[in-house]
């Protein structure tokens, strides 16, 4: 556990040492801020629907942008050799990196809490969907981080990692959006694999174990694949 924490702290230090993290943070806040603010007064409703409607799409770009470096950069700089020859297991490395990125993401997400605070100060905000929406974004973002970590483990090129991560995330996103075009028999399966239904449920404030299981399974699968990719050096 201590080793995971050490790697988590190291990853956070990398994030906050580099200007890229601040650029990503500002971009995320600006874009989301625009979607949050632009419709708020038009609709004249104390709701964050605009923000929660667009945030998943923005995450598809933002998460790969900060997850792409997780392993690819270590491979490129050669520091992976130093890391894996420390008295630490490969599972701890993967877990530490994942939690580092999740903590960074949680910090970015935490900054957007200013939106509900602003709304609640000017209107009567229903906090149930807000908490659900944030939980949904947190789980979806964590799932995308796991996808990004796996993509990053496949290459030493961060751009390639970004593209692979984006394509995988976008596929999961699209699956839920294209159910009306899919054969009826496949609809339940595609609906389960896609992000959409799970995010919708949680953001409505409905915490269903099936949705949580979906996100945990996705994270576990992607981290497992990332671990296998890391272990590939031993073959």
């Amino acid at each position: 556990m201590n080793n995971i924490l050490v790697i988590t702290r190291k990853e956070l230090r990398h994030y906050f040492n580099a200007p890229m993290a601040y650029v990503i943070m500002i971009a995320f806040l600006l874009i989301n801020g625009w979607f949050f603010g632009s419709n708020l007064f038009l609709n004249n409703q104390a709701s964050l629907r605009g923000y929660f409607g667009m945030a998943p799409l923005i995450l598809l770009f933002v998460v790969p942008a900060f997850a792409m470096r997780l392993i690819a950069e270590e491979k490129k700089q050669g520091t992976l050799e130093l890391l894996v020859t420390m008295p630490i297991t490969d599972i701890e490395i993967i877990a530490g990196k994942f939690f580092g990125a999740v903590t960074f993401y949680a910090a970015i997400l935490g900054l957007t809490l200013v939106y509900p605070i602003v709304v609640s100060s000017v209107g009567n905000l229903d906090w149930g969907p807000v908490i659900g929406g944030y939980l949904g974004l947190f789980f979806m973002g964590s799932g995308l981080i796991a996808v990004g970590l796996f993509a990053s483990s496949l290459t030493d090129n961060q751009i390639v990692a970004f593209i692979v991560s984006f394509l995988l995330g976008f596929t999961l996103f699209l699956l839920g959006k294209m159910l009306s075009y899919a054969p009826t028999a496949l609809v339940p399966l595609l609906s389960f694999i896609g992000f959409d239904s799970h995010f919708d449920n949680i953001s409505k404030g409905i915490i269903d174990t099936r949705d949580l299981l979906y996100y945990f399974s996705l994270i576990f699968l992607m981290l497992f694949l990332g671990l296998q990719s890391l272990l590939n050096r031993k073959k």
Partner: peptide
């Protein structure tokens, strides 16, 4: 290979942590 964004202090501190 070293983490180029770390200072010498950060590097040695991190290594001492990971070396338990």
């Amino acid at each position: 290979p070293l983490y180029t964004d770390f200072t010498v202090e950060e590097t040695l501190r991190y290594i001492s942590e990971v070396r338990q």
